[in-house]
């Protein structure tokens, strides 16, 4: 039996209390991590900021542009928000400036939706929520893999056994959720 079961267009997730708490906590940490790349989003709530500058920045953020020009130094953020070009720094910089803010905001929105769904019992996922779960589970696994130095196929991860356990559990959740999404889509084809 897997944690996920669909009925009609809704997938129910059966998680233990501590599992839901852990997933919510990780999603919250992901939001904080991604928030490092969204200074304009923070500026919006900055009480002592230059108001004209803030509103221009907020507008750019709403349009999904105005992002940073350099790749993140944190390897986890660098994997979540990768360069769009290999061997063309100028093109990568331009692409990042235009698209990174939107990418960050969509990833944060997905993680926020995951946290919101975890507050109900049982956890019920509509199709858009299930899509947010798939993406956030991926982002969490990418983040943990960077922390565990899992960089190539076959890497077992260095050090932290507990973190490796969480990484594998997230993979199990994603795999079984995907299976359920596929079963749901399969039924719809008939």
């Amino acid at each position: 039996m897997t944690p996920f079961e669909h009925s009609g267009a809704v997938i129910t997730a059966r998680l233990q209390g501590f599992e839901a708490e852990l997933l919510g906590d990780l999603a919250g940490q992901l939001i904080v991590l991604l928030g490092e790349r969204a200074p304009h989003a923070r500026a919006e709530t900055e009480p002592h900021g230059d108001s004209e500058l803030v509103s221009a920045a907020a507008l750019l953020a709403q349009l999904g542009i105005g992002g940073s020009e350099s790749a993140p130094l944190d390897p986890a953020l660098a994997r979540l928000l990768p360069d769009a070009y290999r061997n063309d720094d100028a093109a990568s910089t331009e692409h990042r400036r235009l698209t990174e803010m939107g990418l960050v905001e969509r990833k944060i929105a997905n993680a926020n939706l995951v946290m919101a769904t975890l507050t109900t019992d049982p956890v019920e996922l509509t199709e858009p929520a299930a899509q947010s779960w798939l993406r956030t589970l991926t982002d969490l696994r990418l983040t943990l893999a960077a922390r565990l130095h899992i960089e190539e196929d076959g890497d077992d991860g260095t050090g932290d056994e507990a973190m490796l356990g969480v990484y594998e559990w997230l993979g199990y959740l994603q795999g079984t959720l995907l299976d359920e999404i596929e079963r749901m889509a399969g039924e719809r084809e008939f």
Partner: peptide
């Protein structure tokens, strides 16, 4: 990148 896949254009 939204899906978390590693992708580039060329």
């Amino acid at each position: 990148h939204d899906f978390g896949l590693s992708a580039t254009l060329a």
